[in-house]
Amino acid sequence: MNLPTPEQLIDRLVEQLAPVLGPESPPNLALVGMHTGGVWVMEALVQRLGLQAVPSGVIDTSFYRDDYAQRGLHGDVKPSRIPFEVEGRDILLIDDVLNTGRSVRAAINLLFDYGRPASIRLAVLVDRGGRELPLCVDFTGIRLDQPQVSRIDLLRDETGRLTLEATEKP
């Protein structure tokens, strides 16, 4: 199947986010990217929107996942680093692909263990639908309803170029 390029989707996210985050971004704003793809999307947004001065952190939700009892610990857990006070922050949570919403649930629980944010909004490159929890997304690159696709992954090569890869159901 033909997928849009990540650059096109980041353009669309930038259009939506610029009025909200631009030069007049809220003083309590902080960015949080979800390992691994969400961190790449966050880095691209920081570049495009000139958000270098905004505090940012990275999280891995493996320790908060709801499938630990069935599947065990993820083999490649990355350290979470939140180098700012979460208490009272307006947080923009960033991920690459949104599907069931279970990772976002885990991310919200993790963030609350750092403190009580004023708000959390969610930006994703691709919204695949298929939610299993009552969660909505605030900023989206594209909404893709592709029942024949089992997963969509964001990949990054050595040069830093991003691509989307779809795996079709067998």
Partner: peptide, 19 residues
Amino acid sequence: DTAESFLTVGDKEVKKVPL
């Protein structure tokens, strides 16, 4: 490697994870 990720768990206000 996994222990490396557990080190930053101590940075949180709530120093626990629900695993």
